[in-house]
Design a protein around this nucleic acid. Structure first.
Lengths: 151, 151
DNA sequence: AAGGGACAAAAACGGCGGTTTTTGTCCCTT
DNA sequence: AAGGGACAAAAACCGCCGTTTTTGTCCCTT
């Protein structure tokens, strides 16, 4: 029981996961312990624990393992800088979706699509428009066509 | 064409929605124009435009009308302060979920569940644990039971 | 204890068809 | 123009069911 390596039992106790889950997740590559003892037994590092804990939270939030896997696959694809997303990134979970916060922006962990728009921004848009009453089309080019179309 | 009331055509042109949609959304109560002319015709206010624009964005982001309605219903339920969520709150959309930012927190607009957890927080948790090696149970009470259970 | 295998229950997924909601279009009235 | 009604196409939803994934449990080996 050193300072920076944990047995499976310990890891399970700390993270709130079952030993069975650790075994399966290891076998399927979700979280693979970084260290092995001489006897070939697994040892979880501190970083491993964080990853496990993150995964546990995602599970508790109702995200299925399958979805977590998908997210990780696409994350390593569109955010290659992060090689251990579960231990590095800020995650927000809602319903069946995982959001990643990266700098000021938020992405869908699955698709990489960015989907943030504070209402304040909308207000500014419409305000601008209001000030230019006569030539309001500039802000919404597509809308301008519609204006003519339905005029 | 005053400064703060817009006809249906204008509203449609500005927001990028079709007049048909405005009519339907009005009829079904999603966004009801706040003003009426003497002749009984609808006039959209500036705030209405913002709401329309927000809804439009949600639609563009792939959120169905039905889901938007659900979100609004539950929003007015667990955030009663906001009586016009579409025109007041910050929304984040990903996949088929709508997130509401309210102060420092984020909620699922549908369930009201709060689901934010920066990884940094997890690291702190585990760090604390590491410093108290001998009595590690305090941080994860549930885990402590497991420790015994699987010991 | 840890690892691994085997088996079964539980959970999650994916596709399909039927139903409801939303939108487009046309027409009529004011 | 705006409102409203009617009809049809498109989009979205819901429930069902067979398949796959995940987990629990038991047993055996080191």
């Amino acid at each position: 029981m050193t300072r920076d390596s944990f047995s499976r039992q310990q890891a399970a106790a700390i993270t709130g996961l079952t030993p069975r889950q650790l075994a399966y997740w290891r076998k399927t590559g979700l979280v693979v312990p970084a260290i092995h003892t001489d006897g070939g037994h697994a040892r979880y590092t501190f970083t491993d624990l964080i990853a496990l804990r993150a995964a546990k939270r995602l599970r508790d939030a109702g995200i299925s393992l399958q979805r977590i896997r998908k997210c990780l696959r696409s994350l390593t694809h569109f955010l290659p800088t992060a090689d251990r997303p579960l231990a590095e990134l800020s995650l927000v979970v809602t319903g069946d979706v995982v959001l990643v916060f990266h700098g000021e922006r938020a992405f869908d962990a699955l698709t990489g699509q960015e989907w943030v728009f504070p209402i304040a921004e909308l207000a500014r848009e419409v305000e601008k428009l209001q000030r230019k009453q006569p030539r309001q089309g500039e802000l919404f080019p597509a809308a301008e066509e519609k204006l003519e179309e339905y005029a």
